[in-house]
Design a protein around this nucleic acid. Structure first.
Lengths: 244, 244
DNA sequence: GCAAAAGTGTTAATCTTACACCCATGC
DNA sequence: GCATGGGTGTAAGATTAACACTTTTGC
């Protein structure tokens, strides 16, 4: 008993000097896409035996020479080629045993990525888009991270013009509403939705119509250019200035 | 040029193996108190030469053997003796140069602490309560952290029954309103404030009156006991269950 | 002309804000 | 009785939610 206590103390003593820096910091990116009227998330196969066959988010260790907030931009860029789009920090996960091969604290970010204009450049390690709502189990605590990010996205999406990266440049209000319904997993009243969007003043009426639709064509809109700067493909300068 | 590149590559190579774990993780706690009708924050003198004479938040490195979220509870407990009260993670700060003596990534938490019933047990290193609104400069990036936490507190405070730790068990609506005004740094309409509080159903009318006031005494209220459990002094079990 | 989706307005309910007078107490 | 803050209600405005019919196109 006494012996055991002494050992423990010694161990803690040792750790307090050598192992404080034995915690690694990583980022995990929840990259949301949109296809087939469903919200998608970019996943990769876990390379750990413990999680064989399970999907994981895109993550990487934070480099000693990069700002924490630069790390998810790097991951995003490495995986999709995208450089300067909206990324939001959501939460930091740090349970002792969340990573089987060591102590890793991970900060989660989410972003919205246009799957259509940024096709994956490779499918190594099973990199692929997966419908968010058909995911049950994931590697690490990534299901929890994903859920937290989906919730945050849902909270933000009505207040901020985030979603326009997920649509082509020209889109109909119906397409926009479909997207919102996919994100919020509800149905929305068409008239109220249109009123709200008009009120928000995020859209520019293009005076163009849908073509080749088997019904009455809808008007086409685009997002106001200023908003594109702020939330979508934006300059590095703006991005850095935005960091909280 | 070529030489330099080679060196850099070698350096990065080295870092990728040895120095990934050379990033330390810490937590910084923004402990809010309330006195003299002002929001206060618990500060300590910075022990670094770089920040001589400046105040800093209470922080500590995350132990290798504790969950990230356990760390702020430990810091809180070490400084105030409080064990189980509401702590919310706010944001993680990780600029390369935020800490002069090494790479430290810090996750910020805030909490609300009753200064009256939990007086400081020591004033070592200048530990003291400081009015939030008279702080200009702080050590590290702690002013930014503080500002972020104040903002989060302001966002949360009307939606959640957070503030009752900052008042005695029995309080008048006026005292409650003073507190809200201190937190939000606005004035509030008395009638509308009272209506809102009644609507929220957070309070129990004690059928008692203020005493020894030089004017008409007000009714006394307490917070509903269930809410005390959820947000205030709560059991460790509840706390652990609450972690996001 | 039929199927399919676009487009459009009004009403009721709710919530938010602004605002003024009488009341109870200590001195 | 006077100074101080306690206590109360109402009306206007803004926001949100519910709801149905006509129009345009492709086939």
């Amino acid at each position: 008993m006494q012996e055991e206590k002494k050992l423990k103390t010694a161990e803690i003593e040792k750790q307090s000097h050598l192992e404080f820096f034995n915690i690694a910091c990583s980022v995990d990116c929840v990259l949301f896409g949109y296809a087939h009227k469903e919200l998608q998330v970019l996943l990769i196969q876990s390379d750990l035996a413990e999680f064989a066959g399970m999907w994981s988010l895109l993550g990487d260790l934070v480099q000693p020479t990069e700002d924490l907030e630069a790390a998810p931009y790097r991951v995003l860029n490495e995986r999709t080629g995208l450089k300067d789009i909206y990324l939001e920090q959501v939460y930091t996960f740090g349970s002792i045993n969340r990573h089987p091969s060591g102590r890793v604290i991970s900060t989660a970010y989410y972003s919205l990525v246009d799957m259509a204009t940024h096709p994956l450049t490779n499918t190594k390690n099973g990199l692929h888009w997966h419908p968010v709502n058909s995911l049950r189990e994931m590697a690490f605590d990534h299901k929890k991270i994903l859920d937290t990010c989906v919730q945050r996205l849902q909270e933000q999406v009505m207040e901020h013009p985030l979603v326009f990266n997920l649509l082509p440049e020209k889109f109909s209000l119906r397409a926009l509403q479909d997207l919102y319904e996919a994100i919020l997993t509800t149905t929305l009243d068409r008239r109220n939705f249109r009123k709200r969007m008009i009120l928000k003043d995020w859209l520019v009426d293009l005076d163009e119509m849908e073509e080749d639709v088997p019904h009455r064509p809808g008007k086409l809109y685009k997002v106001r250019p200023q908003l594109r700067k702020r939330y979508l493909k934006q300059s590095a300068a703006v991005r850095n200035g935005h960091a909280a």
